[in-house]
Amino acid sequence: MPYRPHSEQHPNERIGWLRAAVLGANDGIISTSCLLLGVAAANAGRSELLTAGVAALVAGAMSMAVGEYVSVSSQSDAEKASLDREREELLARPVAEQRELAGIYVSRGVTPELATQVAQQLMAHDALSAHARDELGIREDTAARPVQAAVTSAVTFSTGSALPLLTAIMAPADIRISLLAATSLLFLIVLGWLGAAIGNAPPLRAALRVGVLGAIAMAVTTGIGELLGTAVG
């Protein structure tokens, strides 16, 4: 029977972009809604909310993009340095590296004889890839990608931030705060649920966690906004 590659996908294969996307959107909703609630509680009008919200969206998206790029670039640099060092070791002492690879398979339950055969065949095919995957834990589909992480974070932050911003400028003044808080919490809960579902994690726990923490953050900023509005007014 001819060999057919295994095509099943697992959550860890998309964890990089999923992490950046969920973090970006979640940050956008929480930070912008909290800011707008604080400003609205200080008796600001629609124009002030629009100014504050757009500033929060742009500044937050840039901050997320730069932060993700720097963070993931550091991870990428570390991975490249590890691969360069491993490449040198493979050239300098290939026999010792083969024994090291075989030892990894033995520690995972493979018999020494089979582990040696597997190590020999894998190193004959692509020694660096074998050591990168099994010794260093670096895989092509999960490798750090700084630009992808930065763009994903910026776009998802902007998307998440736009939701409470649109709510704040479109809602009637008399129900603006309550409607903004309610819709932002709904957005957070849905996002938490979807993120967990995509990653095959328990969705209810994730939705409750982000909802409760988001509600606390909104309550704190609303209270501070009311205090400042009263004091300044």
Rank of each mutant, 00 (worst) to 15 (best):
I138Y: 10
T221E: 10
S74M: 12
R19A: 10
V72Q: 04
A231I: 07
L114P: 00
D141I: 05
H125Q: 13
D174G: 01
A124E: 15
L91S: 11
M123W: 07
M1C: 02
A119F: 05
G24L: 03
M62A: 14
P146G: 10
R93N: 14
G229L: 05
I30Q: 12
L204R: 14
G28L: 05
D27G: 05
A168S: 08
S74G: 15
L213A: 13
I175A: 14
A150Y: 04
E97N: 02
I30P: 01
L204P: 01
A81K: 14
T142I: 01
L37G: 10
G60C: 05
E79I: 00
L114R: 14
V151Q: 03
A124W: 08
A119R: 01
A78F: 12
A41W: 04
D174R: 10
G28W: 03
T230S: 13
D174C: 00
P146A: 09
S158E: 04
P2G: 05
A52W: 07
H131T: 06
I15A: 15
I177C: 02
M123G: 05
S129P: 00
I177L: 15
N43S: 14
V118A: 09
L114E: 12
L204M: 14
V232Q: 13
A206E: 15
Q75A: 12
P146C: 07
A42E: 07
Q120K: 14
G103V: 08
A215N: 02
A181G: 09
A206G: 06
V58K: 01
V210A: 09
D77E: 13
G160E: 07
R85S: 12
V72T: 15
T142N: 01
M62T: 05
L49M: 03
A130W: 07
L204G: 11
V70L: 15
C34E: 11
A162F: 10
A215R: 01
A182N: 12
A231Q: 11
V95A: 15
A215T: 11
R139G: 02
A196N: 08
T156R: 07
Y3I: 04
L136R: 10
A144M: 07
T142H: 08
I104C: 00
I189M: 15
S82E: 14
V22E: 02
L91W: 06
A127V: 07
Y105M: 05
V22Y: 04
E48L: 11
V95F: 09
L37V: 01
Q98S: 09
T156Y: 04
E226N: 03
Q117K: 13
A42H: 03
F157V: 09
A215G: 13
T116Y: 04
M1K: 08
S33W: 11
R205S: 11
P203K: 07
D134W: 02
V54A: 09
A102T: 08
A115M: 08
R145L: 10
G60Q: 02
G45M: 10
L185I: 14
I169R: 01
I177M: 13
V118P: 01
T51N: 11
S184N: 09
V118R: 01
A56R: 07
